[in-house]
Design a protein around this nucleic acid. Structure first.
Lengths: 198, 198, 198, 198
DNA sequence: GATGAATGAGTTTTCATTCAT
DNA sequence: TATGAATGAAAACTCATTCAT
């Protein structure tokens, strides 16, 4: 029975172990030993895959950006209706935030991280901006300042961060419905009347 | 000539030094030596004011909550018009976020911080909720789910965090105007037509 | 009873501990713990005086150069007779080598040490060269190439390195007498006839 | 097509790689990975040829002694004139030192190396001693203490170590001529007058 | 009150050596 | 033969905390 694994898999194990622990305990509270124990690997092997602990953080940042971009890209196509586009945007953002927001905070607030080059803010806000501009151009949306509104929409999605709510967080469903409603109003599209209990 | 200072002042120096360094470099990247150097004080003296480094973090959390609550309280009175109340809320939140958001992230994401008891989320979201409920009861606002909408409004204010924007951040004025507009629409109040340059 | 010591003394303790251990076991076979144990000090304190193990090596190199130069300087004055000058040179060199040669090898062969800037070679060879030139100018010595001969004299003194001899090393006295004789002949001065047993 | 090589060649590759790296960086600064990389071989294969890193050092010491002895032996015969013998000795020693001195220092100063059994010192000093004794017995040399003088001659040859000189090293020719002259004088033989350019 | 030298447990990092393939 | 992933003991280095002055 072999202890060896393909390099890609080992690297993935270490990335996964690091990510989980960093989110759970913070980066500097996580020791190399924590990581290698969780990955089921000796301390020495870590250094075959990463130059240092900081190198692991950097690799995680890259991985994060890649995954995030992919998600957003996939959510775009497939809708022609302008209201549906808005709703799809909400849903995709919801999924992203649920999965990735904590990780994002942990990774990009670390050390001397350069917030100005955070690829996530730029990426998502840009996507929303383009959507609003297109909708306005098509006469479907009515927004005075699409660029700034896009940023507002973007930050609104911090509501999907589960840490943001108090002791009685709203259900995901309520959250999504309220957000869809807010975005539609913010985009100036006629609201579909929805019965409160539907 | 003595280097002694009143205890309150010394304590304040240390709190200020800790806060500045924690925001700049993160809590665990900041050493006690950093803090005492910045405060112009010996390492030993630190322990006359705080039981440990963690104790300093805790003191900073308390200080934060106190200051935040104070700000919000001050912003409440003074308006009878429901739209003006909404606008005042935006302005007060803007000021708070500008000053305190980074600090909040650093302090309350630290270590085993108990997110459920973060006093800030609760405080601000509650204030907005109460405002919306009151406005709805008064027939001035039209909101299906005031509680959840309050949370959405609260998180929207992350836009005031200056780190959230890309390379071409909107001016504060644009930001405030867009937010006021969004909040009014979200509250379902008739939008006052505002000339772009007013 | 105090554990604290003046900084200079502590630094000297660490330098002395490092020097003794480096000579005895080699630099890389000596651990920080060896050094701090010998100096009767905790591991952490080492880093208040030296940035790293390499920094200690560097400090020892500097100390070495200083002490060596001092010794040679002191040995110069005090003789007017040209043969006596030569003999004094031999004696001073003997003392230096006995005390410092091993240390020199250990320190200056370490890592990427820059042999071209080894201050010891330069210093001692230069002193001998000046002596030979002066003696030749005074008509006391007869040497075709004083500069090169100085280097030869200098390296001859490696004989004082006790490691250089086989299983039956000559007595110090024999060594000194033979070296004096060789230097006199090399300088072309009339040899004083010495009875073998004197 | 196989990567296999005759065992002797592989062993030689590893010895050569080790020797080069040990001289360049020192023994303990050289990792097994350095060695196997330079030899173009896997880490595992190293242990088919050497029991350990120390075993490689030991093998290199043996190889060194063998080569050195061979050189000296070859240089001995072929001269009947006593002055020519002395000159041949100088030349052979020159060649040896040029090639092997650094290596010697690195190998024999390592770890718990037993300086008393260094075969090189013994070998060369012995050869010179025998030469001097023979010359004295033949009435050709005049030396009071041939044994000690032999050691002095031996250490004089450290001048051939290129690291020993300052920034303006003498040419090899000057060095050899000066050494020949010194040895002749030290042996008490009438100096042959040599024109500077001959 | 105030200092900063001293501590030592805890962390990161290195590398000779093993072993399944 | 040959490989290189994997190991783990040992080394370097950090820093919150203590304590004699």
């Amino acid at each position: 029975m072999s202890r060896t694994k393909p390099a890609e898999e080992r690297r993935a194990d270490l990335l996964a172990a690091g990510q989980a622990l960093f989110v759970a305990k913070g980066i500097s509270a996580t020791t190399l030993e924590d990581i290698t124990n969780r990955a089921g690997v000796s301390k020495g092997l870590f250094y075959q895959y990463f130059r240092s602990k900081d190198d692991l953080v950097f690799a995680l940042q890259e991985q994060f950006s890649d995954r995030f971009a992919e998600r957003i890209r996939d959510a775009t196509g497939g809708h022609t209706d302008w209201v549906a586009k808005l709703d799809a945007c909400v849903q995709a953002s919801f999924d992203c935030y649920r999965d990735l927001h904590d990780l994002h905070e942990v990774l990009f607030r670390h050390g001397g991280a350069d917030h100005d080059h955070d690829p996530v803010h730029a990426g998502l806000a840009l996507a929303i901006w383009e959507l609003l501009e297109a909708g306005v151009a098509a006469g479907a949306y009515q927004v005075d300042d699409p660029e700034t509104t896009a940023v507002l929409f973007y930050v609104t999605m911090h509501a999907f961060d589960s840490n943001v709510h108090g002791q009685r967080p709203p259900s995901d469903d309520r959250l999504l419905r309220a957000t869809r409603s807010l975005f539609r109003r913010g985009a100036g599209v006629a609201e579909v009347i929805v019965a409160p209990d539907s």
